[in-house]
Amino acid sequence: MIEDHRGIWVFAEVVDGNIAGVSLELLGAGRELADKLETPLAAVLLGHEVRHLTDPLIHHGADEVYVIDAPVLKDYRTEPYLAGMGKLARMHLPEIILYGATPNGKDIASAVATDLKTGLTADCTMLDVDVDKRLLEASRPAFGGNIMATILCKKHRPQMATVRPKVMKALEPDASRKGTVMEESLDMKEADIRTKVLEIVKGPGKSVNLEDADVIVCGGKGMGDEQGFQLIHQFAETIGATVGGTRDAVEAGWLSHDHQVGQTGETVTPKIYFAIGVSGAIQHTVGMKNSEMIIAINKDPEAPIFEVATYGIVGDAREILPVLIHAFDELLKEEVVSHA
């Protein structure tokens, strides 16, 4: 019975012994939905030696935390995680479960959906609820981001969605928040599991760290050619920024895929994002539009990038960048001198 299902759950992903950023973001989003539906918000924490992580979950908005702590849950594997999620969901009947759209989050969500024979909306960027019908309205970009679709799961519970990292906002942690922790066991032995994790290798030579950059200078196809793109590198070097690129710039071979920002690249939220010679296709803007300040330089006044830009300069980047580089050079030289 659909009516027997109550409560909103967030799958709390553990990365390097900490709660993943996306899970905290989902607690922020889940808090809002739970308040609208007047139902508790719970985090589900699976792992090995993770009990100390229940506090941050509560501080970020969870009313309840379900914990399963077992050696078989040390590294992520579908089988034991599915066993844990499946058991909890059958015991406690949540009405909504949210997962981060990370490799592991998508993997576990797909397995749970098939196990519980319920619907799963993928890669959402917007969440809301129809309070009367208690329906989750999960919206997602489809067809390469050309259109948004709202997906509903009317007759099955729980309603489930995976949600992209960095689109929802986490709440400021509040250490005075209280919540209940409920622990369950998992009856599964290592010998029962067909998949073994032999080794985990961290960031193999990920040469660029766009995610943590404060300032990103992103160049697009409008830089003309590889030589023109050097201006992007020069500018970034002048101000100590990280270089990003559009897919078209990457495909042109001007920089490696690690630098790509957008739907099929990185999602970034720097303090300042320069988009230079970038048209502002939706597949690009989904990856950068939450930057604090966006500065666009484009010679086409109609370019869609201006719709998301905080400040826009209409003009030829190959003329403007040298002026900008020179100006910053002077500015930063002054600084160095004045500190001396």
């Binding site: 309205e137 259109i147 948004m148 679709a149 709202t150 300069i313 003329e319 002026v323 900008l324 100006a327």
Partner: peptide, 29 residues
């Protein structure tokens, strides 16, 4: 199929910001 496509809509447009004006040097300033 438990899921149904409820509605389709254009991706939300964000409010445009400030256009700078003048010569390249003026805009940079």
């Amino acid at each position: 199929s438990p899921t149904v496509v409820g509605k389709m809509f254009a991706p939300p447009k964000q409010e445009g910001g400030h256009r700078l004006e003048g010569s390249p040097q003026e805009q940079v300033d």
